[in-house]
Design a protein around this nucleic acid. Structure first.
Length: 432
RNA sequence: GGAGGGAUGGCAGAGCGGACGAAUGCGGCGGUCUUGAAAACCGCUGUCCCGAGCGAUCGGGACCGUGGGUUCGAAUCCCACUCCCUCCGCCA
């Protein structure tokens, strides 16, 4: 959520950011109108309440003085003021609710250094590591991951669909073990080398928690929801991790905070309904390791670079060629002020797969979730900046791993770092 | 699911319907003392909104789990809800 003060004082900044996102800047005027309306009501209300407070006090004094007549007069005045207050209060509440509802739909203000562009074609490749090999260079016919995964016992899509419908999978023994190894290795790396503290969080959260991270009210369509208890299935661990310090004022010296969590992620993928995506590339439920940071505002730009590096370390450690994309203004998500994507190479389909999206959400989520900090014990509270990044999304890592390391006989070599996590196993072999 | 108890400032913990943004203690900050530290003593110490000022700050308003109600006036009375604790039942 933007600060209404920003909208009031620097409307042109907000407008320019919306234009760069290819969104309608008209909301800015509507916000200004609602804000002015609300402030006028607040001023009137405060005046009336001051008056009513004086009346009440006068009743007490008159009674103490034994002047029943004066007390009754003041009592009547207070009663009348109370009635007016009730009316204005209702109007003020209404104005405030309207303002907030609209404010909740406005995306974060982009950082200045975000490259301009309308869609993903304008995203800039900032760096690449490892050579993305062509399918041809392997010297044998590469199998696409969905074939490898089925033959190696990584996936069992038929049974996945039987259990839960389309875009769900069952991981077979090899897949389940491989995923568990990857998760454990990633978490260990982020803890030991990058200083993240692990959390195990709820996968179902309250509406307020979803609002805090920015997923509601705007993106309800993409979320699974339990009507009976109004609980929402998380689309990413970013949601509960953002909620962790909701309504808190962090003491001096607390920041920066680095959290990570492994969770399943649930996405309705409504937009993808009807599109043909094979295998593990797009699922309604997938596992992910998520990194999350809370930092002082002046440190968030550097922290974003750090997170990208932490995500890169995962791809690097697995020996997967990857590249970093700097998203352009039109492609950046709602909560984010600046985003980098990390993509790994899929040699069989010869395409880059997004395995991580690293975002600096500045104070946007902190404001919604009301997460503040103090620089000094008696200092004024300020909003923190929040950042998140996948580290990494598991199904697509598995895709790249299988395709990149496959051998002519249909087996797949495992990266060295995973061997200890796989009980010494070095090669995945077709299940019989 | 049933019965009972509770929710007050960073923490602990008081609070006859008016003088309560709220005693007291602890903690924190600043100071006195000290070579330094501790102890002792003194002072300060919540958040948000509106308005004024470049600003230190000042004026007004709101907030004692949340939402409603009674009243001229609610931390205090009434109702509903949420969460926590204890006991019973059920359960991985």
């Amino acid at each position: 959520m933007l600060s209404i003060e920003t909208v009031r004082r620097e409307p042109e900044v907000v407008r320019r950011s919306l234009e760069r996102r290819r969104e309608d800047p008209g909301v800015v005027d509507e916000l200004a109108r609602l804000d002015a309306q609300r402030r006028a009501l607040v001023a009137e209300l405060d005046g009336l309440r001051a008056e009513a407070n004086r009346d009440s006090k006068a009743v007490g004094e008159a009674m103490k003085a034994g002047d029943q007549e004066a007390a009754e007069g003041q009592r009547k005045a207070g009663r009348e003021a109370g009635e007016r207050i009730k009316r204005i209060e209702a109007a003020e509440r209404d104005a405030e609710a309207k303002l907030r509802a609209l404010l909740l739909t406005v995306p974060n203000i982009l950082l200045d250094d975000v490259p301009d562009g309308g869609d993903e074609s304008a995203n800039a490749v900032t760096r690449q590591e490892g050579e993305p090999r062509s399918a041809e260079s392997y010297g044998f016919e590469l199998k696409p991951h969905w074939e490898l995964a089925e033959s190696l016992g990584i996936t069992d899509f038929e049974r996945g669909s039987k259990l839960a419908g389309r875009m769900f999978s069952v991981l077979g023994e090899a897949g389940a073990r491989l995923q568990r190894a990857l998760i454990a290795w990633m978490l260990d790396m982020h803890r030991q080398r990058h200083g993240y503290s692990e959390r195990a969080v709820p996968y179902l959260v309250l509406r307020e928690t979803m609002e805090g991270s920015g997923n509601l009210p705007k993106f309800a369509d993409n979320l699974y929801h339990d009507d009976e208890d109004d609980l929402w299935l998380i689309p990413t661990a970013e949601v509960p991790l953002t909620g962790l310090h909701r309504d808190e004022i962090l003491a001096p010296g607390t920041l920066p905070l680095r959290y990570m969590a492994h969770t399943p992620c649930f996405r309705r993928e409504k937009a993808a309904a009807g599109t043909q995506v094979r295998g593990l590339k797009r699922l309604h439920q997938f596992d992910k390791v998520e990194m999350f940071q809370l930092v002082e505002p002046e440190r968030s730009a550097a922290a974003l670079e750090d997170i990208v590096e932490h995500a890169s370390d995962v791809a690097r450690g697995l020996g997967l060629p990857f590249r970093i994309l700097e998203l352009c203004s039109g492609d950046i998500g709602f909560q984010s002020a600046k985003t980098y994507d990390v993509e790994v190479w899929s040699p069989a389909s010869e395409e880059w797969l997004e395995v991580s999206s690293c975002s600096n959400c500045t104070d946007f989520q902190a404001r919604r979730a009301n997460i503040r900090f103090r620089r000094k014990p008696q200092g004024r509270p300020e909003y923190v900046h929040t950042l998140n990044g996948s580290g990494l999304a598991l199904p697509r890592v598995i895709i790249a791993l299988l395709e990149t390391n496959q051998q002519p006989d249909g087996t797949v070599r495992l990266p060295e770092v995973l061997v200890p996590y796989m009980d010494g196993q070095q090669v995945l072999e077709p299940a019989r």
